[in-house]
Design a protein around this nucleic acid. Structure first.
Lengths: 297, 297
DNA sequence: GTTCCGCATGAATCGATAG
DNA sequence: ACTATCGATTCATGCGGAA
């Protein structure tokens, strides 16, 4: 398996042909939006977007395990005063080719950039579309539980400012562990709305998402040592999140400059990897079988 | 214009045929979602939903002014483990018949229905799809500005329910007094994400959406004395919101029981209408032009 | 006259059971 | 095999009664 934990330079439709069938547990990616980053990626025209995407989706389908999940982060751009339809056309087209459209998560970008137009407000959300090959995909819901929303309201009516801060951050923070230790409150399952701020410090990539975003889905749909693929890896956020969570990664990008940038970022986070490995050894002493969770069939 | 400020009993596709062209400024509605069971509204099957909706959309198009807006509140149901595609198919079909798909707002329902399933989380958002006939529709952005900061924003949204002057007890002693403090502060434009809780305290009435939801869009897309149409009026939330904001309303529902319920609710809020009229007279003494800023309150 | 707590109530979804 | 019905699951919200 020497294709694991590497960044590949090239078009994912070509690179993936050398990969085996049913070998990836999660595909998480944010492809170049239509015409949005034309200076870097060569700009796919909105009307040609579906035709451009589908051959790649076919490879995604092939390499994904039957129990795996494909999360597509995308948003239609405004063309000529209208929202373009390439995203919803893509959903229909992927269903025709066998994908199941299981769910559509909504990412509420809390700090979207300010701006004013005469006929629309700031765009403050993006789609995270969940596709699957089969209905019985793996889902580890307990890994993303959040504190119950009630505690601030029922407990501290005086600290209104801080309870608002808690409310905003409760779903957004990537590691429920920290919050759970924070007060040891009861935990509840999240919803399909994800509140996260966009990445402020742009890492030299034109469409970076916060690390918490892939982290959330990696925890939800994979277990340790599973394989996470990002076929449009960009600045390497998905591999970094995978490493932090002790998953294996595959990154692909058509721009060599991004491949280099990703590898640099990945090399800088190898140290946390060791500590996670040590924790793994400890985990082997735990009575619970780690592969089981207590949910998904 | 004796068709104004009335509730009509019947199928909107029939009722609207008697209405003149280009006579409505805003259509705000939440149609019966596709339902597999056929008990209440006759249960439109998901596969037949687009075909059922389009003749009605054709009438909507005819009666809407060229500068008007159509806001459609809808959400696809889960069918056989997948999100059904009737909503996105409807968007494509409406564009084919001339509608512009200008924008898609997100309604984040803070109190979504509870439940736990092995393969999905609670559904916590709905679509508010904006359609227009022409690009130069009316939009009064200044009427929905919000104070800077999430804290003030959430507080103010809670307050606006009670500023309809029905229930003074909730906020009367607390933040309500301080609301005037915020009116002089910095205001910013909102985004296309709307955070609101659903109505859950109403016994007997199954108000699908809170009054504040139509209020927000009525303020955004109409001015005083404009005409607001809800062709699936249900319990009458949209007309009530229109009355509170001094707009004219038209309500239609196929179920007589809902028509009666709407008229009862409307008659109960006629008294606040007088007080609004009085406030309007007072407003004329204010230095600000009353037609512009945020006077309805 | 406030504050606080109990409780009913949602545009839900899945899986099993029954016809 | 396919459709219809039912029970179990689960949590933010707002009202009403009590302290």
């Amino acid at each position: 398996m020497d294709y694991l934990n590497k960044i590949f330079h090239g078009d994912c439709v070509d690179i993936l042909r050398d990969f085996p069938d049913n070998s990836v547990d999660l595909i998480f990616t944010s492809p170049p939006y239509a015409d949005q980053r034309s200076n870097t990626y060569g700009g796919i025209k909105p009307d040609e977007y579906v035709a451009w995407f589908m051959p790649r989706a076919e490879q995604f389908y092939r390499v994904l395990k039957p129990t795996g999940t494909f999360i597509l982060n995308i948003k239609e751009r405004v063309v000529n005063g209208e929202r373009h339809t390439y995203v919803i056309e893509l959903i229909l087209e992927m269903r025709k080719s066998g994908w199941l459209w299981t769910e559509e998560f909504m990412w509420h970008k809390k700090n979207s950039y300010p701006g004013k137009w005469p006929n629309r407000f700031r765009d403050s959300w993006e789609r995270l579309i969940q596709f699957n090959k089969e209905k019985n995909f793996h889902m580890y819901q307990d890994t993303v539980m959040v504190p119950v929303g009630d505690w601030a309201q029922s407990r501290l009516s005086n600290l209104s400012e801080t309870d608002q801060a808690r409310d905003e951050s409760k779903v957004g923070s990537g590691f429920g562990k920290n919050i759970s230790n924070w007060l040891g409150r009861d935990m509840v399952y999240p919803t399909n709305v994800i509140h996260m701020a966009t990445e402020c410090g742009n890492r030299g990539h034109s469409a970076a998402f916060p690390e918490e975003l892939p982290s959330w889905f990696i925890k939800l749909f994979t277990k340790e040592l599973d394989v996470v693929l990002d076929p449009f890896v960009g600045s390497g956020t998905t591999p970094v999140a995978a490493i932090q969570l002790n998953r294996k990664y595959i990154g692909i990008d058509v721009l060599e400059e991004y491949c280099i940038k990703s590898e640099e970022r990945i090399s800088r986070c190898q140290i946390p990897l060791f500590s996670i490995a040590e924790k793994n050894e400890l985990n082997e002493y735990r009575p619970n079988s780690p592969a089981r969770g207590e949910k998904e069939r």
